[in-house]
Design a binder for these strands. Structure first.
Lengths: 265, 265
DNA sequence: CGCACGGTTGACCTGTATCAAGCCGGGTGG
DNA sequence: CCACCCGGCTTGATACAGGTCAACCGTGCG
């Protein structure tokens, strides 16, 4: 009801007074002062650790909608923490087909794929105008030798990504179209809610085709499945604006594979 | 021709003289002396770093075929380096369906999923009698603060797993059954070859059903696809023994999605 | 030796892809 | 300011890959 109707991801997440040093499209900043810190940095730091942490971020960088933050093949230097905006990452096979591997929003870290071979293996594309904090990876390395909490945090972020991908594999390997879309919507809205947005309304930043790529479906199937959910009164869909009317129904769709032995909801 | 016909993964990989301290089913050991080191540890270490590295591994542990090294929900303490044997990891959804997320062999590291929340989120099951090196994670943390190469190595291992999973997502999201199985066989045989086995012959350690789960297919489809490859003279299949006759054909199957615009092989 | 599990194969079914036509809405240029 | 255009979306008709169900087989283990 009184929840944010979200026209922009920036709502509720506007920083107060960061140190800004303009440098073309990038600027210097401080984590210690950023209210996304609890999303991308470790919690429970001592005051002196907090100050050290500021050294992690070199500069900010703006990324215009439709442009890439990094591309497959580019050399890897830094991880990026998303401050505002929305990204997709996708891998491309030699034969040209590609696969969206994830959608990332404020507070999430991208670029982890580049560590292993010092160059990126996927593209990160801004789906809306965005701003990221550039965190040079060797600096992260140095600092995490001194600040244990940061070391553990880096490990956790990478582990979290591995676990997330396990979930995607489960989805792609064993779910049907409706289950996939339901899981997708629940995941998106849950992450948005953690950022202060509504738990029932969302604006999709990506096309049906991009959703389809992520979910291993064709765009027509995504569209039809949205329509089916709408007919059943589970969601309202108007273009990219989605209102979830019956979250329970979505959850039941995801968790029910075999409904003949249906345990009580 | 004269390549190892592989009846056991231990062939070519037998250690010379490790420090063994028996402790029921586990024993103390030294990495510095292990000839799998180049697979699971960083290369180019100085002699003193090499000695420090020995502190990473606490003990070895034997895992009987069909038993688990760890299970979903168990508390996370250690990563494991596989010394001998073959594992699968799988995640299980609340509704019971499960998904094989990977197959792991000698030199590979498992348990990374447990870092983020201090408990494991998948099961690791030995598909043949196995032995692993137990590496307590807090010890890895301490040491990697002192040995830069180890720190970077841990990051690379996690990043590699993320990139591998991107590849699986591409496979599950956009490939057809034949492409999936061809990619699977090529991947397996390539990893085995890196361990000194034949590049054309392999013994599958897993059932058709497990292959199917990994590839997002039913076991019947896996079986039929094997038969199809056999009919076409691409492979010879006798139960779990597979001989790859035409590697090029497998590669073409994987890389050709659109063959109407077929570029030359 | 026999049983049970893993694997193969066949017949049929269905969910999703494919192909195609049309619609909607927002941005642009006249 | 309106008309047009184009990209994104919806919807329908049809095709097909892979799933499902079922029968049978082989083999390796107890």
């Amino acid at each position: 009801m009184n929840e944010t109707p979200m026209t922009s991801h920036e709502v509720n997440l506007i920083p107060s007074s960061d140190t800004l040093l303009f440098d073309g499209h990038s600027m210097k900043v401080a984590c210690s002062n950023c209210n996304l810190r609890e999303l991308c940095m470790p919690v429970g730091l001592s005051p002196q650790e907090l100050i050290r942490i500021d050294e992690v971020v070199a500069v900010r960088r703006k990324v215009k909608r439709g442009t890439t933050l990094f591309r497959n093949g580019e050399s890897f230097q830094s991880l990026f923490a998303i401050r505002t905006g929305f990204f997709k990452t996708c891998v491309t096979a030699e034969d040209g087909r590609d696969q969206v591997t994830g959608f990332q929003m404020a507070g999430e870290i991208i670029g982890l794929d580049g560590i292993v071979n010092d160059h990126h293996t996927c593209d990160a594309v801004a789906l809306e105008d965005a701003e990221v904090c550039v965190m040079p990876f060797d600096r992260i390395g140095e600092l995490s030798r001194e600040v244990n909490a940061l070391q553990h945090h880096v490990h956790r972020i990478m582990s979290r990504e591995i676990v997330r991908e396990h979930g995607v594999m489960l989805l792609l390997g064993s779910m049907r179209a409706e289950e996939r879309l339901a899981a997708f919507l629940l995941n998106l809205v849950q992450r948005l809610h953690a950022r202060g947005f509504s738990r029932s309304e969302l604006v999709l930043r990506m096309t049906r085709e991009e959703i389809g790529s992520y979910l291993g479906l064709k765009l027509e199937t995504v569209s039809r499945t949205f329509s089916k959910f709408a007919e059943e009164g589970i969601v309202e869909v108007r273009q990219r604006h989605v209102r979830i009317i019956d979250t329970g129904a979505l959850r039941r769709i995801v968790n029910q594979q075999d409904l003949q032995l249906g345990r009580p909801a």
